[in-house]
């Protein structure tokens, strides 16, 4: 049975279609979502979303963090940015990682909330670099 998946960014609806299973990068480990999943609200880390039809991966998208709402019928991903893996660019990803790391070095001097946010940004940037290698 398919579950309806939606991926939205603040600027537009990126994807909306039924899939058999979706694997989302939740903050405490990847999470496979099938139809009938228990209702959850999860925070996402930077990583890839895999869309399954049957037992094949049909699409892979990179998200740089966000939130997901899971109910038995649907899975809604609120992402700031979602890009198909094929469109990622290694050099851009590495430049962003470098920027995130220097931002983290600055933020570490401020309060812990800023430090946490910067750390997440570094992690997301690193995941992006890894995703380009995949």
């Amino acid at each position: 049975m398919p579950i309806s998946l939606e991926i939205v960014s603040p600027e537009r609806l990126l994807l909306s279609r039924p899939v058999d299973m979706v694997v989302i990068p939740a903050s405490e480990g990847d999470m496979g979502v099938l139809e009938g999943h228990t209702p959850m609200i999860v925070m996402l880390r930077g990583g890839t979303i895999d869309l399954y039809e049957g037992d094949r991966v049909t699409d892979r998208l990179f998200v740089n963090g966000g939130f997901a709402e899971v109910t038995p019928e649907r899975c809604t991903v609120l992402a700031n940015e979602a890009v198909p893996l094929a469109e990622l660019n290694r050099t851009d990803a590495e430049r962003q990682l470098a920027e995130a790391e220097s931002a983290y070095a600055d933020a570490a001097k401020l309060d812990t909330a800023a430090e946490d946010a910067a750390l997440d940004a570094v992690q997301a940037a690193r995941a992006r670099v890894e995703a380009t290698a995949a």
């Binding site: 228990t38 209702p39 609200i41 925070m43």
Partner: peptide, 20 residues
Amino acid sequence: GAIYEYEPDEETILARLLPQ
């Protein structure tokens, strides 16, 4: 009436969700 489970906990998510 759906009761959600939260991962991580509600407050961590709220702290991130509210500014957004």
